[in-house]
Amino acid sequence: MSQPLLTVNNLTMRFGGLTAVDSVTFDVYRNHITAVIGPNGAGKTTAFNCITGFYKPTDGQIVLRHKDDKEFKLEEMEDFRISQHAKVARTFQNIRLFGGMTVLENLMIAQHNHLMKASAYTIGGIFNTPSYQRAQEAAKKKALSWMDRVGITDRADDPAAALPYGAQRKLEIARAMCTDPVLLCLDEPAAGLNPKESEELNALLRSIRDHDDVGILLIEHDMSVVMEISDHIIVLDYGRKISDGTATEVRNDPAVIKAYLGVVEE
């Protein structure tokens, strides 16, 4: 296999006396869907927050490689720089959209850094220079193409908060993709979706994996989603990695069965 896109090595995160993530090591590959699963409180979201820079890990290295072999040490970078320079995008467990802004606006904000440059840090934008106009139009086009792909184009001018739940999840993914990421991190994308929406989500994630040249890292509770679409699964329990492999391998791992079903004790 080629070089991994993301290498997480010995990631450890302690809150006071509590070790939420305990020397976890794994790789994420481009054009792969990698899932992190585990029971409640296994440290999935914490690991996620470390990768996306919202927490500073206590220990360990997180290295992201671009195609040009440029390497980013994510554990040393500020959260917004991880998105801006290392090109890691993420969604949130409890959807975080800009609720009072329209769907289109949400997708335009995702292209903020690009548009800021195009507006010459606002100075060119004030005078509405042709180059800014072009960039603005291009950004709109890109937003439109993502709306088409997730199927919310007819709601383009509605506030994000007015969208139904499933559409909000899709919008959040579209918004993350508008930042042109190389790694897309999804925190429980299927939570709260009905079976039909869940099916659509699977199709969307597959299409992103196959056509957009990104690696997808997702946390999921819903095993049906995970087993169906993941190329690679990492199982966490009490902050430790207990299994790592393909869906079939993980499914048959006694450690995983024990973690999920518990020791028979009743």
Partner: peptide, 18 residues
């Protein structure tokens, strides 16, 4: 737009590289 986004959700802003 970034100002308004900041009012709406600061954490989401940071996740988008702002």
């Amino acid at each position: 737009r970034a100002w308004e986004a900041l009012r709406e959700d600061e954490i989401a802003c940071r996740s988008l590289g702002i």
